[in-house]
Design a binder for these strands. Structure first.
Lengths: 346, 346
DNA sequence: CTGAAAGCGCTTACAG
DNA sequence: CTGAAAGCGCTTACAG
């Protein structure tokens, strides 16, 4: 038999104290079946010995691994740091660890990643699906963080309401012609956001949509978005459906000598790490990731607790939409009365 | 005793096939102590039953959890997605899972996060330390991803060499006066990069350094970097020590009507997700994260394998510097012969 | 080639 | 209040 652990185990503590392992176990777990005097003595001794409970032993006996899986099929998602941080925090608060799995953007390997987690004995998992992916039920409880368009067991930011915040903000600033800039109209998230914006426009406002992936399929990756043209046509507000697209818009406008926010406004979504850093800093809408993670983890733990037998297809039934928050920065503002563009031909 | 698992275990397979658990175990693990005929029969049956081995049982018996820890004390680090992805991939390739731990930027909780991982039985961990943090030896092998300034057991990109790439590139473009833009001169990474740049300048080139944190302590967060002034003074190249700072520089320059790259060049470091998206796209230097992760994980596994008793303070002795790669995009280029700035007062 | 048995470290009825 | 015992699922010498 292999030399398994370096540290002491319950048995070592027990014999060195002349008591039984059962008593040590009870004392350390605080179940109170041990006299306070003895319990304290045991705890002290355990601490002195640097006792660390064996996770494997406990897991085997109790049937719970104390681990949740986090599946991020599209890890290049710039929201990933915040999601991971929030999930890790919520899980740790509940005494759980978080195992990550990534399918490197490949839809096919998503199932494989999920299986790896199941084999590692996760008690449940949180999945942030790739765009438009339907999650096949796994053999453990699952919580999905996505747009609420996915049926069931989903926690999501209220992207639609976030869009309304943008619309209201742009209306307040007096903008009349909005250009919505998204990446792909098949993304549920982006669609919800765009619909939210449209629904929040006043009657005297109008908007068009520009989808970058479509454009690039025609004009090539990294092509100009033609925003200078849009400005000439009278658009004064560029509402991107993600900060990523807002960054592209902002820099392209600046490249053409258009001043933000004096001539036009630019807004984004997500409040990515760098969005306060641009000059001007980016107005954006932020999801409350901590809240979302908290709900997802809680739903998962509920579902785990409910079913002592985590047999197939049990999923959280909870559906939640967490409100988003507008963060106003310098990239959006009223147009200057004389918008002399001072444009340059480029 | 609790209903532990839903699926079949070795014993179930064994009895239903009329063989012993030992034989089933041997057949499934492919150790070859079973006749091929029987082994195949067992494997088929196991598959048909949907057998998933119990991780806890195996871990308890073998003393190996098959899990590595990834400690990210500064999860807001924009490199995090790439690091996590690379580590997860390298670990998965070696049959290991990855447990994440985050100390939310708080140096004090780093130790706590490490302890949580130890309690969860990780066999080793990879730590990306907070700036200037010294890692206290944990009770398992540790690999550190950082600048090579940290002594011992470290894997890092060769930031210094990356700086030289930038210097050579700017020299090629004919730039004479460089402004290095960093966040904090106490960051080993940033210092290595800056030193690399300085060391690579030709004799007829000069450079100054601008540290944003210092500036902001005087002038307030989000203050102007005064780059327009620097351009007037004759600087033509702005070499940021991270894409984050490059973004700030690029947008500030554009805000002031300075054209990139016609008037000045801007370069960054890290090749963050959005750096190809700006207009103009950002020239940058990229670390080979996959390589770094591979080395870190390999070093860890070596160290784990070596010591059957992973008792205290065993660390990887390997020190590696992985070369960086220059990615030339539009933000750096030769100055236009007539650099009529067409500046605007702002 | 196959099986019986021990044991990893823990928790939990159960008995005293 | 405390202890003896069983057993979670697995792997690995050892015996046949």
């Amino acid at each position: 038999m292999p030399q398994l652990r370096s540290g002491p185990n319950l048995s070592r503590i027990a014999t060195s104290l002349g008591v039984s392992v059962a008593t040590v176990s009870n004392a350390l777990s605080g179940k109170g079946r041990v006299s306070e005097r003895l319990a304290e003595k045991i705890r002290d001794h355990a601490r002195a010995l640097g006792y660390v409970p064996s996770h494997a032993g406990r897991a085997l006996r109790t049937g719970r691994s104390g681990v949740l899986g986090l599946v991020l099929p599209d890890i290049s998602n710039p929201l990933f740091p915040k999601i991971a941080q929030a999930i890790e925090f919520a899980a740790a608060s509940a005494g759980y660890g978080v195992l990550i799995a990534d399918s490197r953007g490949d839809v096919a390997t998503q199932t494989e990643a999920i299986n790896r987690l199941v084999e590692r004995g996760v008690e449940g998992m949180i999945i942030v699906p790739r765009r438009a992916t339907r999650i096949a039920a796994a053999s453990c409880p699952v919580a999905v963080i996505d747009t609420a368009s996915t049926p069931g067991n989903t926690v999501a930011a209220d992207h639609w309401q976030g869009g309304q915040l943008i619309a209201a903000h742009l209306a307040d600033l007096g903008h009349k012609r909005i250009l919505i800039i998204g990446n792909n109209p098949e993304s549920n998230v982006q669609n919800d956001r765009a619909d939210g914006i449209r629904s929040g426009l006043h009657e005297d406002m109008s908007c068009e949509s520009l989808w970058i992936e479509k454009l690039e399929r025609r004009a090539g990756t990294g092509c100009s978005l033609g925003l200078a043209r849009k400005v000439e046509q009278g658009h004064t507000a560029f509402a991107a459906l993600s900060d990523l697209q807002a960054l592209r818009a902002l820099t392209e406008l600046q490249l053409h000598g258009i001043k933000v926010p004096a001539n036009v406004s630019v807004t984004g979504f997500d409040d990515l790490i760098w969005s306060p850093v641009t000059a001007p800093a980016l107005t954006t809408v932020k999801m409350d990731m901590d809240k979302i993670a908290e709900i997802a983890v809680e739903a998962l733990l509920d579902s785990i607790g409910t079913s002592s037998i985590p047999e197939g297809r049990i999923v959280t039934a909870k559906v939640d939409r967490v409100p988003m928050h507008l963060i106003i920065r310098q990239s959006s503002g009223p147009r200057s009365p004389l918008s002399n563009l001072e444009r340059e031909n480029s």
